[in-house]
Nucleic acid binder design. Sequence first.
DNA 1: CATCATGTAACATGTGAAGTTACATGATAC
DNA 2: GTATCATGTAACTTCACATGTTACATGATG
Lengths: 154, 154
Amino acid sequence: MIRDSRLSSVLHGLLHMIGAGEPVTSEQLAQAMATNPVVVRRVMAGLREQGLVHSEKGHGGGWTLARDPTDITLADIYRAVGEPTIVAIGHRSENPGCLVEQAVNDALGDTFREVEALFLKRLGGVTLEALAKDFKRRLAKHKQSLEDQIHAVK
Amino acid sequence: MIRDSRLSSVLHGLLHMIGAGEPVTSEQLAQAMATNPVVVRRVMAGLREQGLVHSEKGHGGGWTLARDPTDITLADIYRAVGEPTIVAIGHRSENPGCLVEQAVNDALGDTFREVEALFLKRLGGVTLEALAKDFKRRLAKHKQSLEDQIHAVK
DNA sequence: CATCATGTAACATGTGAAGTTACATGATAC
DNA sequence: GTATCATGTAACTTCACATGTTACATGATG
């Protein structure tokens, strides 16, 4: 099953980067992603390799988006975060000669590819920009609700 | 991602059970599944709960198929082996109030369900019987190829 | 050249699946 | 009945892998 917690974590970081108008340090991202700076660098390194983010050393350095958020989809991020294949059924001790697995792969190989394609296609339909917009909307709503509560207490 | 090694393991066991005309012990299945008897019982217990296999204690006891192999699909087995949901993107520390995840789920919730449905639908299209037939065909071919090699050496 | 930030290797920890041991329960053969 | 065989299951151990941590190198800025 697909249960990516890294993708979720990375999205937190990226939304944070969109909000800030300047480079965000690994230290700051670590807070947004509820982890520590080294892990942030490790994960973000994958995104950098895919050209999604950019990193700068020294004073005023940190992480910035390398592309326009309208040009980055969740599929890009998912791939960059680095899942090998989405669907695969196999034995632990890779046994390519195993006749049972050959039969399974013959029966379901196309299915695996089909499911993976559908998944990535849908991820590809959601841009970082769209996600950010929706997030901001929720944030505003949330704020409003808190204010209402305060008002009610008065 | 889906990378079930248990399903593959269980299939080995089930094909073994189809071949044998009598109950197969956990000991024997453990060999076919490259593990040990207790693990076999643990995994098979899930299949029994779903009514796919039957177990008998004592002399001459062991595991047998509870339904006709034409009536068991890979979807049944997959479910019985017990994967919770196929696709889910979430933070480790389940944080249902997290606005980022709410936004992601709003954008992709339907997709997750759609991908899962497609996957299970395809698994549902392959019966254990069909798989066993294909497996036997491969086995025969494999045997033939070995005999040919022996013949060539002579 | 002091400071800040990333880059990365090496090691530590946590977690969940798989493996193991031990013993209880039930069924069959004698 | 009782010896034997097989499953049922709890408790513990081991293993693999992701994550977390420490330490230090590299490069950029003031």
